[in-house]
Design a protein around this nucleic acid. Structure first.
Lengths: 202, 202
DNA sequence: CTAAGACGAGACGCAACCGTTCCGTCTCGG
DNA sequence: CCGAGACGGAACGGTTGCGTCTCGTCTTAG
């Protein structure tokens, strides 16, 4: 009844990252669930431990602070990002990108957590940096590839402003889905793709 | 040294809204400054009172809870929203709208507070509703007018999807300014206006 | 002049959470 | 088989915020 189930005292390299471990998994899951429920500002490590069915010490043994824990965990999770394939046309690529982003934003935990992380970034520069590098960076690279391929195909002018293009790719969907809380159906994504392509070409 | 400076025991109609009052002003200012510093989740009425140089009772005499206070104050503030004039062309109207939104987002307090309020809306439906009705509603009406006028001029097709148009008007600028933390200069707003017009027309 | 009432200040008891430190249990590597 | 070490659980003292309440002060309406 007491004690854990799979304790491997030296599973991970000392000082190195924690990757696989039943306790760590439970803590990570509890962390994100708790984050979705109360937000970053009100997140307490006590509640995370309670939800994970662990002791607080198990958390402090892994991370020195709430902020470090947050940065580490969102980094781990956001590494997973599917690549957007080359569909042969700008519109196809745009639609694929929008569909992938939409799928990510549809995840109930993601849609609740993202606004909170952005807000936390305002008050905690390290979180903002981690979000920009890891989460944004991955998505950003896919989007840049979409634009770069279009330039190579001749669908976009060589001097195209990528930064502005990225805002047009990400902004409307994030706004409607997460801020306006209006999920986008496939038909809407199609129409949005049409309009984004027109904007990119302008 | 003790006591207040302008106490009007019955300045306001009993049970009615509080509008003008030196103490109320100080509390409101302190509330937004505190909100910008620590975010909604960590906002404490104790800190607000401290910053306002008032007692906690002065706050509780006005609002029953933190949430009610937040809703009341953001409603008051967001009522102020400049109208976007009819410039005669869709592009002119779009640019005027984007410029107005950009000016609002440039305000140091607004840019720090908005992400937090959106995040708070995830966990507090009443705040989300208030944000949607009051803040969004005002801006939204201006934007709808821009699109409506364009349809009347014949610049946009009669069946234009206003909802999608609003996402294109608001999304990219909010994304770049508030999430990406990249302020937009006038030239960028011009180019964004070109692209938004192209998207709307598509 | 007086009485009413809002004011700043701050103490109250209560609850939550912090980060640390024990405890006794359990599971491994050697 | 035994020692090292992670585990859940619980308690620690300290801090912070809650919402209420009571002071003595100051202003204003009547």
């Amino acid at each position: 009844m007491l004690g854990g189930m799979s304790r491997s005292p030296a599973v991970r390299p000392p000082g190195g990252p924690i990757l696989q471990d039943a306790v760590t998994d439970a803590i990570r899951t509890a962390f994100f669930e708790e984050l979705a429920e109360v937000g970053y500002g009100r997140l307490s490590l006590e509640a995370v431990a309670r939800r994970a069915g662990s002791g607080k010490a198990a958390i402090y043994r892994r991370w020195p602070s709430k902020e470090a824990m947050t940065i580490d965990l969102i980094t781990q999770v956001s590494i997973a990002a599917t690549d957007t394939p080359d569909t042969g046309t700008l519109r196809g690529d745009v639609l694929a990108f929008l569909t992938a982003v939409d799928a990510a934003l549809r995840h109930p935990l993601v849609s609740r957590i993202l606004p909170d992380l952005f807000a936390a970034g305002v008050h905690h520069p390290n979180i903002a940096a981690s979000l920009g590098d890891r989460v944004g960076g991955a998505r950003r690279e896919k989007a840049v590839n979409v634009l770069r391929r279009a330039v190579e195909r001749g669908e976009l002018a060589p001097g195209t402003d990528f930064e502005l293009g990225l805002d047009l790719l990400a902004g409307p969907l994030y706004w409607s889905t997460t801020i306006r809380q209006a999920p986008a159906d496939p038909a809407r994504l199609e129409r949005l793709a049409d309009k984004v392509v027109a904007a990119l070409a302008a």
